[in-house]
């Protein structure tokens, strides 16, 4: 169905977010092109997660506009973006392979790619184990393995390094580097300096109510 669609640009203009009664941020504008990465920094509650969910279409936009432009006109966010949030979306009763196998089928990815995706995060030898016996870090790696499995140009990552050890962070950085080199784009909320080239920070604190109000 979708074979490596390319992203032209992600354009955010005048974006605002209100959760409950509280204005989280406003007047947020930026642009991310192919091969670029934007790191969201800022204190807790500055709206990093909200922004990622808004781009993913999982949160209402209060004001402003988010434009995700692909190489073709008929591509939607679902065809272009992949979201990895706080939760790993891993089912404990299913084995590691079954977990990833479901997503492969669900996204129409050939099942041959599963083994390679597991190998990237060092889960290859654990494929037959029920995901319930995995540690928190291993579950996170299993969740992140979807990035390698499903080919989407725009990655939306919410604190992807949480509960990962140094080796796994290195594997993730490699994966991200490769993604950027192949013309992908990343928007990530992270506290860790991943040491990637060409990364632009976006300080969410400057758009919060505290600065403006």
């Amino acid at each position: 169905m979708t074979t490596s669609e390319a992203l032209n640009t992600l354009t955010v203009t005048g974006l605002a977010c209100v959760r409950g009664e509280r204005e989280v941020f406003r007047d947020l504008s930026f642009r991310v092109g192919a091969g670029e990465m934007l790191t969201l920094v800022g204190p807790n509650g500055s709206g990093k997660s909200s922004l990622l969910r808004q781009i993913a279409g999982l949160l209402d936009i209060t004001a402003g506009e988010i434009l995700v432009e692909g190489s073709r006109d008929d591509l939607s966010v679902a065809d272009l973006a992949l979201y990895a949030g706080h939760l790993d979306a891993v089912k404990s009763p299913l084995s590691v392979i079954e977990n990833l196998g479901f997503w492969a089928q669900f996204y129409g990815v050939p099942s041959e790619k599963i083994a390679a995706a597991l190998e990237i995060f060092g889960l290859g030898h654990l494929g037959h184990l029920p995901a319930g016996v995995l540690s928190a870090g291993q579950k996170r790696r299993l969740g992140l393995a979807r990035l390698a499995l499903i080919d989407r140009p725009l990655w939306l990552l919410d604190e992807p390094t949480v509960s990962l050890d140094t080796a796994s962070i290195a594997a993730l950085v490699d994966l991200m580097q490769g993604h950027l080199q192949q013309g992908g784009a990343i928007v990530a909320a992270t506290h860790v300096d991943l040491g990637l080239d060409g990364v632009r920070p976006l300080d969410m604190g400057h758009h919060g109510r505290g600065e403006h109000g």
């Binding site: 169905m1 979708t2 969910r53 993913a56 279409g57 999982l58 939607s76 966010v77 679902a78 065809d79 973006a81 979201y83 949030g85 706080h86 939760l87 790993d88 979306a89 891993v90 089912k91 997503w103 669900f106 996204y107 969740g143 979807r146």
Partner: peptide, 14 residues
């Protein structure tokens, strides 16, 4: 919803 799968199901192309 509790394990985050729902977000991905909602976002998916299907």
């Amino acid at each position: 919803q509790e394990d985050g799968t729902l977000d991905l199901l909602v976002m998916a192309p299907q």
